Amino acid sequence: MATEQNVSAVEPAATTDTSLGPDGNVVALLAHVFTPISGILVYLLEEDNEFARYHAAHSVVFGIGVIAVYATLQALSLVFNTLAGSVPVIGFLLALFVTIIEIFVSLAIWLVVFVAWLYLLITAYQGEATRLPVVSSLAEKHLL
């Protein structure tokens, strides 16, 4: 009987209740659904479950990072195309070439982001505290 009490008393943080209602793994999953907006909401509203807050912080940093990468890519493309457009004929061809390269780079980035997002969703629901190289260190340093 004593072993049954010890096993049931030690629950993983992912399956414990949260101040928002559902189990921690469900709240962690919801934190990743609409990255970074849902991550901010869970981070601000969740008080009890550190697992859910951990995933919410990762969601915020991951989402802001994706937005920053996309905005940087768009800004660089705009600047280059503007500069190249001022050069007759060759500028047009350069701008066209850069636009084609940008499309392929954007597709590659979005594929990587989508796979990483799915990975974060699955591991959050499974109750695992996932560590992404840059995201984890920034989230732990600034949000946790």
Rank of each mutant, 00 (worst) to 15 (best):
G24P: 03
V60P: 01
R53G: 05
A31F: 14
L45K: 14
E46G: 07
I67S: 02
V10P: 00
F51W: 03
A57E: 01
E4M: 00
S8E: 15
T72S: 12
I67N: 01
G21R: 07
I37W: 05
L41V: 11
T3C: 00
T16E: 14
V61T: 04
G63M: 10
E46V: 08
A2D: 11
V26A: 12
L45P: 00
A57L: 00
G39K: 03
Q5I: 07
I64F: 01
V7C: 00
L29G: 08
S19G: 11
G65T: 04
A71Q: 04
F51S: 08
I67R: 03
G24C: 06
E4C: 00
Y54N: 04
V61D: 07
Y54D: 06
V69P: 08
L73E: 07
N6S: 10
T72E: 00
P36F: 04
V10A: 05
V7E: 13
R53E: 01
L44D: 07
Y43G: 02
Q74D: 08
I67Q: 05
G63P: 07
A14P: 00
A75W: 02
A31V: 13
L73W: 15
V61M: 03
Q74K: 14
V33S: 01
D17G: 15
N6Y: 09
V33N: 02
I64D: 04
L30C: 03
I67K: 04
D23G: 13
L73M: 15
S59N: 12
E4Y: 11
V33C: 06
L73H: 14
I40H: 04
A52V: 10
Q74S: 10
V66K: 09
L30G: 01
T15I: 12
I37M: 10
P36C: 03
A13P: 07
E46I: 03
A28M: 10
Q74R: 13
H32P: 13
G24T: 05
V7G: 00
G21T: 09
P36K: 03
A9R: 08
P36R: 05
V33M: 06
E50I: 02
H32W: 15
A13S: 13
E11L: 14
E50N: 10
S8I: 13
F34A: 14
S19R: 06
E11T: 10
T35Y: 02
V66S: 14
E46T: 04
A71E: 03
T3D: 06
Q5N: 12
L73Q: 13
E4L: 00
E47A: 11
V42T: 09
V7D: 11
A56Y: 00
A56R: 12
F62M: 06
I40D: 02
A68C: 07
G24L: 06
Y43S: 01
L73N: 07
D23V: 02
Q5H: 02
N25P: 13
L41R: 04
E50V: 08
D17Y: 12
A68P: 08
V26E: 06
E46H: 03
I37K: 04
L20C: 12
T16K: 15
L44E: 11
V60Q: 10
Y70H: 13
G65R: 07
P12W: 00
F34V: 15
E47R: 14
P22Q: 12
V10Q: 08
S59H: 06
P12M: 08
Q5S: 09
S38I: 12
I37R: 04
D48N: 12
T16V: 11
H58I: 11
A52I: 13
V60M: 14
V69I: 15
A31Y: 11
D48W: 09
I64V: 09
